[in-house]
C-alpha cells in the first residue's frame, strides 16, 4: 500500500504547486508551466493506478498517452496565442489582456 500512497501524495503535491502557479502568475508562458505541472500530476496518478491496481488493463497506459497529447496540444495552442498576442500588443502579460473579455 505504501508505494501507491507515495505516488499519490507526490501527485497531490505536484497538483497543488501547479494550481498555485497557474493562478498566481501573470505571464502566459508561466501559466502554461503551471498547467503542465498539473497534467504531470495526473500522469503520475494514472501510472500509479495502472501499476499498483490494474497492471493487466492497458487502458491506464493509453490514458497517459492521451494526457501527454493534451500537454503537447496545450503548448502548441498556448504558444500560438502567445505569438499572436505578442505581435499585436508586444507583451504576453495576462494583466494587460482585459481586452480579450467579451
Amino acid at each position: 500500500m505504501a508505494t501507491l500512497t507515495v505516488a499519490l501524495v507526490v501527485g497531490a503535491v505536484l497538483f497543488g504547486i501547479g494550481l498555485y502557479g497557474a493562478l498566481s502568475q501573470t505571464n502566459l508562458v508561466m501559466i502554461m508551466m503551471g498547467v503542465e505541472l498539473m497534467l504531470g500530476a495526473a500522469m503520475v496518478n494514472l501510472v500509479a493506478f495502472w501499476r499498483f491496481l490494474h497492471p493487466e488493463v492497458y487502458a491506464g497506459q493509453m490514458f497517459v498517452l492521451i494526457v501527454m497529447t493534451v500537454m503537447a496540444l496545450e503548448m502548441t495552442v498556448g504558444f500560438g496565442i502567445a505569438t499572436g498576442r505578442f505581435r499585436a500588443k508586444g507583451s504576453v502579460e495576462m494583466e494587460e489582456a482585459q481586452d480579450l473579455k467579451g
Binding site: 497531490a12 497538483f15 497543488g16 504547486i17 501547479g18 494550481l19 498555485y20 502557479g21
Partner: peptide, 10 residues
C-alpha cells in the same frame, strides 16, 4: 487554492 487542492487530493 493550491494548498486546498493539494490537501483535498492528499
Amino acid at each position: 487554492a493550491g494548498a486546498l487542492g493539494a490537501l483535498g487530493a492528499l
